[in-house]
């Protein structure tokens, strides 16, 4: 509309942006499609599930913190390769990563999620929600699985997933941004590129609005993760302090 403050961007520019962001995504996505196809779709056996369940709560938390941190390191690399991200001031780079890196991990989770068996690739095999019982966060785990399942049902291409991840990361409404306008411009361009690619892929009109709904679902998942971490830390402060990855502690204020 006329009130739309979106920057004027040529189709060639949009195509270029799609290319850059897709390339960044593929270079930093942790598992390539080919690797995923070759990965055995083996689920954990009952005795293995029980072995995860019988781990002490703190050991399971530590294991998940390590896995999340590994995935986040790839997201940081993705961010660095997004056109314009490294031109933002350092404060804003940090703000965007602190708020958005786990959200992108949840978005990327649909690549390693099997809807049929409701399981996710974790620690070498496919794990259902019961594997994570020892964390003591059944409601959060079940919401994360539901989110992954609903992302899978959109059947996004890698291009679409790359642009949606960049869109999430470049959220201009995060608190404490110093150059909000700069971030807004980048996010608007990314949204135009996402619309462009959805149109080109002849996706139905509803996909973009479905993706917009996912943004609020992601925020809710992340704030619930923070709540669960605070509750865990209140009981096991020393475990968090001495055994959790330093990057995880920096990101989630542990």
């Amino acid at each position: 509309s006329n009130r739309d403050p979106s920057p004027t961007v040529s189709l060639a520019e949009l195509d270029h942006l799609v290319q850059i962001i897709s390339k960044s995504h593929l270079e930093t996505c942790q598992y390539l499609r080919e690797e995923l196809q070759q990965m055995s779709r083996q689920n954990f056996q009952q005795d293995e599930v029980e072995s995860y369940q019988s781990k002490p709560r703190e050991a399971m938390w530590q294991l998940c913190a390590v896995k999340i941190t590994e995935a986040i390191q790839y997201v940081v690399e993705f961010a660095k390769r997004i056109d314009g991200f490294m031109d933002l001031c350092q404060n804003d780079q940090i703000v965007l990563l602190k708020a958005g890196s786990l959200e992108v991990v949840f978005v990327r989770m649909c690549r390693v999620f099997d809807s049929q068996s409701n399981s996710v690739y974790f620690d070498g095999k496919f794990a259902g929600p019961d594997v994570f019982k020892g964390l003591g966060c059944d409601d959060l785990i079940s919401s994360v699985f539901d989110f992954a399942k609903s992302m899978c049902s959109l059947h996004l291409t890698e291009d679409e997933l790359a642009l949606f991840s960049a869109f999430v990361l470049l959220s201009a409404d995060r608190s404490w941004l110093q150059e909000k306008l700069q971030v807004e411009k980048l996010q608007q361009k990314t949204q135009l590129a996402l619309q462009h690619v959805l149109q080109k892929n002849q996706r139905e009109h509803g996909v973009l609005s479905k993706l917009r709904c996912k943004v609020s679902a992601l925020r809710s998942l992340c704030s619930r993760h923070t709540e669960k971490l605070s509750a865990f830390r209140a009981v096991y402060p020393d475990i968090v302090q001495t055994h959790f990855p330093p990057l995880y502690k920096e990101l989630f204020g542990a």
């Binding site: 690399e77 350092q90 602190k98 920096e250």
Partner: peptide, 20 residues
């Protein structure tokens, strides 16, 4: 800066995912 030492390092490093 001290509070986000590792993030700063990661942002400044020219690492590739292979090195991660």
């Amino acid at each position: 800066k001290e509070k986000h030492k590792i993030l700063h390092q990661l942002l400044q490093n020219s690492t590739s995912p292979v090195d991660l």
